[in-house]
Design a protein around this nucleic acid. Structure first.
Length: 352
DNA sequence: ACTATGTTTTGTGGTCAGGTCTACG
DNA sequence: CCGTAGACCTGACCACAAAACATAG
């Protein structure tokens, strides 16, 4: 116990020892980058969760505003408190922040958090801390130019904003008009963010970059969804690790589920449903959309992997919150004052 | 690149209908 | 085990301001 590292100020809800930098609304969970990838790469449904940076002020809510003046990211409440029109701070330069979904690679994450000038290679090659320094205004351009193929401009936030018909692997959510200067979007924990991304980059082979290479990008996004949505699948495949893990036919789990998958290798179109009878939403995995490995039985899971998957599933279920989230308070106020007929909105009587 | 204008889409809450669950005889 | 009543749960519905988006100048 004495060797234990001191607990971070805002610990990751999943691992508990890393500093949480992201917030997943769907799970109401604070996560570090590593756990975020682990949790949200489990299956396609989880990958759809929108994640945003964690508020620098309260450390408890998803950040929606970037204050360029303070270089901090804030949730709506903290932004309102800090930048109240009555205060002088209201003159601060602020802009909305975007979230992301899917399983972005490190390069893509760099762009998402505002390190657009920083390539993954430069992140890896730079000594500890220098990457952050580069972000803070030092010479990064040279590195970026050297690794042209890795230029983060290939995957910018513009690229993340896509229509529902798009097959991008991730997308920005609740996106206001994009500002020109998207740097410095990671607030006061940029050192921690860079540190975590660096660790993530170390474990992520550079081959993955093919998904964000200039030459491959446009065509890649036009290819099949199976490949495009989850570049991270490929990474797992490379590492002989299953990208998705089906909740195993564990007898203990079966008692609280309506349908439990019996087979691990699935046929096309087969749907697995996980859930309980307590009103909690069930999770369906349609194997048609799940990736498969060429080798028969290659995606069969060991009992250890099944236990791991089950544990992750239970953890997510435990931390998930189902309370309603109001995105626009003004609409709520409006709706509450609307004229109703049997609960339905009624037309307003207009005087002429 | 920016602004103005027009069009389309989204989100909001109270009530109800219909389905599901539970307890009981 | 079956049928029934009541409790409980869930999704649809509505109008319209605000947000998002598209287009023109």
């Amino acid at each position: 116990m004495s060797a234990e590292a001191p607990k971070p100020a805002r610990p990751c809800d999943y691992c508990g020892h890393s500093t949480a930098v992201l917030y997943c609304r769907a799970d109401s969970a604070k996560l570090c980058f590593s756990c975020d990838r682990e949790v949200h790469s489990t299956n396609q449904l989880f990958s759809k969760h929108t994640r945003t940076l964690l508020c620098d002020a309260c450390d408890d809510s998803p950040a929606t505003i970037l204050c360029s003046t303070d270089t901090s990211v804030l949730c709506q409440n903290c932004d309102w408190e800090k930048h109240n029109p009555a205060l002088s701070d209201s003159l601060h330069q602020r802009r909305p922040l975007e979230g992301f979904t899917g399983c972005p690679s490190v390069s893509e994450l760099l762009s998402v958090v505002g390190f657009g000038d920083l390539s993954k290679k430069s992140l890896l090659s730079s000594p500890q801390g220098s990457a952050a320094d580069g972000f803070l205004g030092c010479e990064i351009e040279g590195l970026s130019d050297f690794f042209v193929w890795d230029a983060p401009s290939v995957v910018t936030l513009d690229d993340l904003i896509c229509s529902s018909a798009s097959s991008h692997s991730f997308q920005a959510m609740e996106v206001p008009p994009l500002p020109k200067n998207r740097k410095a979007a990671c607030g006061r924990h940029r050192e921690e963010i860079l540190s975590q991304l660096r660790e993530l980059a170390k474990s992520e082979p550079l081959d993955l970059e093919q998904y964000v290479q200039p030459g491959n990008l446009s065509s890649a996004f036009e290819r099949d969804v199976e490949v495009d949505i989850y570049p991270y699948h490929e990474w797992h495949r490379e590492r002989s690790e299953p990208m998705y893990q089906v909740v195993p036919p564990d007898p203990s789990l079966r008692t609280c589920t309506e349908e439990v998958p019996v087979k691990q290798s699935t046929s096309v179109g087969e749907t697995h449903t996980f859930g309980d009878k307590g009103g909690n939403p069930s999770i369906s995995l349609n194997s048609e959309t799940l990736p498969t490995t060429p080798k028969a039985g290659a995606c069969e899971l060991t009992s250890q992997e099944r236990d791991s998957a089950l544990l992750r599933y239970k953890q997510k279920k435990k931390t998930r919150r189902y309370d309603k989230h109001i995105r626009y308070e003004s609409r709520k106020v409006r709706a509450e004052s609307r004229v109703r007929v049997k609960g339905r909105f009624a037309k307003m009587e207009r005087e002429h």
